[in-house]
């Protein structure tokens, strides 16, 4: 075991926040899916977003990534207020995400999935396509080299020319994460990256997330596997009924009666707490 860095615990902690949310709300009809969620995500750390089913975790990630607009509240990415910005503008600021159910670009090859990821490419301009072919060639060569390196790291290199739709569930998870890495995120939102994958792959994905952290990427991940949360996450945000219930290290939160009642007790009783 490596020794993990001391976590950034609370909203009042000393670590600089890369993402700050204040009073986010989102209702669907009469159901308040998110009901005043307020939290900070410390820069350069791995933070887990946990909570019972229906707590509003995925809705929060959807709001943060711009896939949904919040009814009220605000959020800042670094020093920029990104409240209800369009998705692609948020992504261009460096916030990438994965989806609960893997969403690959199915008709593209594995390599093309990665090549599509860099946020702004000179080759996406009609002018450059016809009048700056050398620039395109150079950029494409650099992107292919980087994508190849990432695919090798994630064990997908031999599948690079396969269509993404042909991959298995676990391979799709890896593809989605590696695609996000290719986009050079500053903040990476992972929606249940370990869900539905075998234990060996869970370990590998956990390792990749630690790699990201080592490279300066901040990670916010929704995860139910508390074993992995305890091992790789510096900080935990507990969400229940759309509200932030507590933040801190998981080992500390295990003694928090509210958290135990709302989530941990349920997990432990269900025997899935590992």
């Amino acid at each position: 075991m490596t020794s993990f860095e001391e976590p950034a615990i609370t909203r009042q902690g000393v670590d600089e926040a890369i993402l700050s949310c204040e009073g986010l709300t989102k209702a669907f009809g009469g159901v308040n899916a998110v009901n005043g969620a307020t939290f900070d995500v410390p820069r350069g750390k791995i933070t887990a977003l946990i909570g019972p089913n229906g707590a509003g975790k995925t809705t929060v990630v959807n709001i943060l990534s711009g896939a949904m607009k919040s009814d009220s509240g605000s959020m800042r990415l670094g020093s920029t207020d990104i409240t209800n910005w369009e998705r692609y503008k948020i992504a261009r600021l460096g916030l990438m995400r994965t989806f609960q159910l893997s969403r690959e670009l199915s008709g593209l090859t594995v390599l093309e999935n990665l090549l599509a990821a860099p946020k702004v490419q000179a080759g996406e301009s009609l002018f450059n396509i016809f009048f700056r072919p050398r620039l395109l060639k150079r950029e494409e060569r650099q992107n292919i080299e980087r994508a190849t390196e990432i695919l090798r790291t994630y064990g997908l290199y031999d599948l690079r020319d396969n269509r993404a739709r042909e991959l298995s569930g676990g391979q799709k998870k890896l593809l989605e994460i590696s695609r996000g890495v290719m986009a050079s995120p500053s903040l990476f939102l992972l929606d249940e990256p370990m869900a539905g994958v075998n234990p060996a792959l869970i370990e590998r994905i956990g390792g990749y997330i630690l790699d990201m952290k080592a490279q300066g990427v901040t990670v916010l991940m929704i995860e139910h596997n508390l074993n992995i949360v305890e091992k790789i996450c510096d900080n935990v945000i507990v969400l229940a009924e759309g509200r932030t219930l507590a933040t801190g290290r998981l080992s500390d939160l295990r003694n928090n009666p509210e958290v135990v009642q709302a989530y941990l007790g349920e997990v432990i009783n269900a025997g899935t707490g590992h």
Partner: peptide
């Protein structure tokens, strides 16, 4: 054959993913 064509196909396959990658769909 250019990256622009690739971005078109990315949008065809999943506009939400393309937007999440910073593409102004």
């Amino acid at each position: 054959r250019s990256p622009l064509g690739r971005t078109f196909r990315a949008i065809r396959d999943d506009p939400d993913v393309a937007a999440a990658l910073g593409k102004g769909v």
